[in-house]
Design a protein around this nucleic acid. Structure first.
Lengths: 249, 249
DNA sequence: TCAAAAGTGTTTGTCCTACACCCATGT
DNA sequence: ACATGGGTGTAGGACAAACACTTTTGA
């Protein structure tokens, strides 16, 4: 049901109605909402976790048969973020654990023919759930850094979303969005390492996370491994430092 | 010529054309571009420089006679940033020294009646030039932190733009946009102090700026004051650290 | 008892802050 | 001369990287 929503149908066309003043040359553009959805999945060979994202195959021109970001035209009665969340659910059967507006792309020539302005969101979903997520013929998960040529300017959009995710993980506490409600510090560190693509010192990672005061330690521990059981932590929802007094999330 | 462009004319209305699939409920929204324009002007009494921005008086409903951000409907053939720069010039007769996309505001109820999605940019213009900038009956400069109630959600937008400017000045080299081609470190520090609203140590400011390697020192000095002449610096255009590999500027 | 990861302690270096101090000019 | 801001030096604290070390489990 969703492949038709991926930037295929020009709904609003240029309005030739002449109105007075400087707005005479104004005309409507088609407004779309797309979402870059990130999940963490273990690589087939290396078993290291890497970033993956779902794409939808286009079934119409332009760019028929190319892969594209999930999205669609903005319905008149739907909020921007709600539209992003809806296409996310339609594509993956998942709910976003984190959702933020990324950027609005509106270059005149980014879509052949009709001028399309796309408000793009980026989202994080839980890794484990993403593994068994629905994947039809027209939806497939790709490794984020090994993408084929995508439709429109979507390669550039994913590049920017990746940059945003990687820079934001370093100062904002969003990595837990890839995990369950409780998690060990090793799991959280694994997420950071996968996103940043570099190893982190367990000792220093523990201290910096604890110092940021965003985690609540539970009394539960994870046994079963052949080493000392790790304590389970929970994310502290209160207090949103770093983030603006307006938008973002 | 510009007062009519400030979010008054609904060009594209909902398109009732029924099309198949999930896009059936899709409809066009009116797409506008607005700009938050910052300049640095000396306060009347305190003589300290503070942030000011130009607003336009609305001459139509909704929100007739309220002050609003400069902007207008996006013309079909104009790039987003170009539209922002154009409205800036139309409003102030100035050219933007810095221009960046801020956020896209699209709440359903942000404009009475028609659904309006606004792609908002923020810009910096030169202080001295802004002082003698054209100001008509329908354009007036306001102190950024003493705004009257504005039309639509524009108070919230300015709040966010202020937050963005203040956080970005701390790590990105944009303060020179308020100054001429050459400037002394004291002038640059004055800009930082005005934006951040706190005093900075001249010695440490000098070092941190020099360490960032964004300034080229000229051989010129500014004489005339009754102290040692200050060296003039020029901004180094090369190398854009901190900023994304895609958008932003 | 040993491997392995959890978790703690300590050293080292770097960066930022505060502030003492010298430099060069106009009055 | 001396006041004023330009410009340099430097000690102290905060913080992060690197790494040695102890703890607790399963095999």
């Amino acid at each position: 049901m969703l492949e038709d929503t991926a930037q295929t149908l020009p709904i609003a066309k240029q309005n030739p109605l002449a109105v007075g003043g400087a707005a005479a040359s104004a005309a409507a553009s088609s407004l779309a909402v797309s979402t870059v959805i990130f999940a963490l999945r273990p690589d087939e060979e290396s078993h290291l976790k890497t970033l993956w994202l779902p794409l939808v195959r286009r079934t119409r021109d332009p760019h028929r048969d190319l892969w594209a970001l999930p999205g669609g035209w903005l319905p008149a009665g739907e909020e921007l973020a709600a539209a992003a969340g809806r296409t996310l659910r339609e594509t993956t059967d998942l709910s976003p654990r984190y959702l933020e507006q990324l950027y609005t792309f509106g270059d005149i020539d980014r879509s052949p023919g009709l001028r399309v302005v796309s408000v793009v969101y980026w989202a994080l979903v839980r890794s484990e759930v993403a593994e068994r997520a629905s994947v039809g013929d027209n939806v497939r998960w790709f490794a984020a850094d090994q993408l084929p040529p995508l439709a429109f300017d979507h390669n550039r959009i994913v590049e920017y979303a990746l940059w945003r995710l990687r820079t934001k993980v370093e100062y904002a506490r969003i990595a837990h969005a890839f995990l369950g409600d409780t998690f060990t510090l090793a799991q959280l560190r694994e997420v950071h390492e996968a996103v940043l693509q570099k190893a982190l010192d367990p000792a220093n990672f523990r201290r910096s996370i604890e110092a940021s005061g965003n985690l609540i330690s539970t009394d539960q521990h994870v046994a079963g491994a052949r080493h000392r059981p790790a304590r389970l932590y929970r994310y502290d929802d209160r207090a949103n430092d770093h983030d603006p007094p307006g938008p973002a999330l």
